[in-house]
Write a protein that binds this DNA or RNA. Structure first.
Length: 156
DNA sequence: GCCAACGTTGGC
DNA sequence: GCCAACGTTGGC
């Protein structure tokens, strides 16, 4: 079991949206490092901290689970999509995604400020300045600590 | 809205 | 393969 952190802007797709739909294809990833994490690092069943970026305040708001294998992100071939990539070849799709399913919403957000202030979370990528990756690996001890700060049990 | 950080593109 | 220009992310 590996642990991850996935960012999303609540104005676009927040934890409430995931709770409502239950499961969502994580489309729009247009960064090679993030894609590689999804493709090579993740396994079905892995857990991810759901993080609200560009929010007031930004922070961890819940937990999602990797719910599918990787498959091509359909938005890359959709000329009407803002994620359209005319350079991607359908025979060899450049962008991939996985589905994520809702696990739980934290009773209260653990803000970025709190994450940064917690010594036990030192080294967590999201707390480091300049980390813009929308998908990052999270150490098990960090994942558990965030659950504890949020007042929830680590999901099975 | 500003702007630092950083990834990508493309000319050479 | 270098690197300047440009675009995007995301905290503040």
């Amino acid at each position: 079991m590996k642990y991850w952190l996935i960012k999303s802007e609540p104005d676009v797709f927040g934890i409430e949206d995931l709770e409502k739909v239950g499961r969502e294809p994580w489309d729009g990833i247009r960064n090679y490092q993030a894609r590689n994490f999804m493709r090579d690092g993740m396994e079905v069943g892995d857990l991810a901290i759901f993080y609200h970026s560009n929010a007031k305040p930004p922070g961890a708001v819940g937990i999602a689970r990797v719910a599918s294998d990787v498959y091509p992100d359909p938005t890359q071939f959709d000329s009407k999509s803002k994620y359209h990539d005319p350079k991607s070849n359908p025979d060899e799709p450049r962008w991939l995604l996985r589905d994520f399913e809702f696990v739980l919403k934290f009773p209260e957000m653990v803000s970025l400020e709190e994450l940064k202030a917690e010594a036990a979370l030192e080294g967590m990528m999201v707390t480091q300045r300049g980390t813009r990756l929308s998908i990052t690996p999270v150490e098990a001890k960090h994942f558990k600590k965030v659950c504890k700060m949020a007042g929830v049990k680590v999901p099975k």
